[in-house]
Write a protein that binds this DNA or RNA. Structure first.
Lengths: 108, 108
DNA sequence: TGTCACTACTTCGTCATACTATGTAGTAGT
DNA sequence: ACTACTACATAGTATGACGAAGTAGTGACA
């Protein structure tokens, strides 16, 4: 299913944070992961810009490691600020979901 | 709760469509409604730009009516295209919610 | 009469974010 | 050499929500 790009705004960053929180990972892997979990149309460029942003906002730490099958990978890990941002994200998401569910039932 | 503006992208338009679908209404009323249903910080300017967009995309019909306590109101109603867009919106929302719920549980 | 509060709509400029498109490079297999 | 896959980077574009400001109509009240 092709979700409108606008609907993904703000959401993708949260998903990337979530993915990183489950263990260090890198851009290419995140992209593949998203593509296999309902976000088929998310491309590398999008993921990399998010990762750059996370780094700029100091929510992650980065470590470059050589790979045996291709160029070096940049592994990302959440720091405390990143964990906090992720927690806030889920709170916002939960709140939004709740409100949306209510509005959808309203009247009908 | 103050939801990040980015998270609302695409969502607000859906909510406005939903609200209109429950009976003809106008900008000022929609704004008040949103403010009382979890979207406290949505301002008039935002709602009016959405309404303009809906009209431009021909998803609504508009009818101006005099009011007894203020300037005339522009009442909006969904047409067939609007109903279809609303239905699609809820499908996308449902899909997104489902995926998000899965990702949140993943690993943990 | 003048002022204020509330109702109601409009528009301009700004910002953040996702996407398009393209490019660079390393490794491995043929 | 060529191709495929892995991996990262970035310039430019479009979209949509928001801040801020303005315009108007009505009624209340001093």
């Amino acid at each position: 299913m092709k979700i409108s790009t606008e609907l993904l705004k703000g959401v993708l960053e949260g998903i990337v944070l979530q993915k990183i929180s489950t263990g260090e990972t890198y851009g290419y892997e995140i992209t593949k992961y998203l593509n296999e979990h309902g976000f088929e149309d998310v491309v590398e460029g999008t993921v990399y810009t998010i990762l750059m942003r996370l780094e700029k906002h100091q929510l992650v730490t980065v470590e470059k490691k050589k790979s045996s099958l291709g160029p070096a990978r940049k592994f990302y890990r959440l720091n405390a600020a990143g964990e906090a941002t992720l927690a806030t994200f889920w709170q916002h998401w939960a709140f939004l979901s709740t409100q949306m569910a209510k509005l959808q039932k309203e009247d009908a």
